[in-house]
């Protein structure tokens, strides 16, 4: 995972969110525009500029009690404004395991 510090140097290439893991249980969460956290990706604040992304990240990192390991992650905005994870890692974090837990 890229650290928030390193991400300051990174320009985002498209719509992005800030994601982290909730401190008390580790659940995947997304930073909302109300300065809170949600487990639902569609609740996430979407940023489109590097400055906005850095600001959202800085605010998220400051909430150390709420969530851990905040970082910027890419998303895709589909038709009708539906937000989808921007890569496989984020897809797995958002949707869960890709595997069967029990033998076929």
């Amino acid at each position: 995972m890229t650290s928030p510090l390193e991400q300051k140097k990174i320009r985002i290439m498209g719509p992005s969110v800030v994601t982290a893991n909730r401190t008390w249980d580790g659940a995947v969460v997304y930073r909302t525009s109300e300065q809170g956290w949600s487990t639902v990706l569609s609740d996430a604040a979407i940023v489109s500029t590097s400055d906005d992304a850095r600001a959202l990240l800085a605010e998220s990192v400051a909430d150390d009690v709420g969530a851990v390991g905040a970082y910027i992650a890419p998303v895709e905005i589909k038709e009708g404004g539906v937000i989808k994870p921007g890569n496989l890692r984020e897809h797995i974090r958002s949707k869960g395991l890709t595997i069967d837990l029990l033998p076929a």
Binding site: N21, D25, G26, A27, V28, V68, G69, R89, I92, R93, G96
Partner: peptide, 15 residues
Amino acid sequence: MLRLQNGVYLQLHAY
């Protein structure tokens, strides 16, 4: 470091 010393990592979905 305290959690790591007790075998607790933070992974994709959870601890």
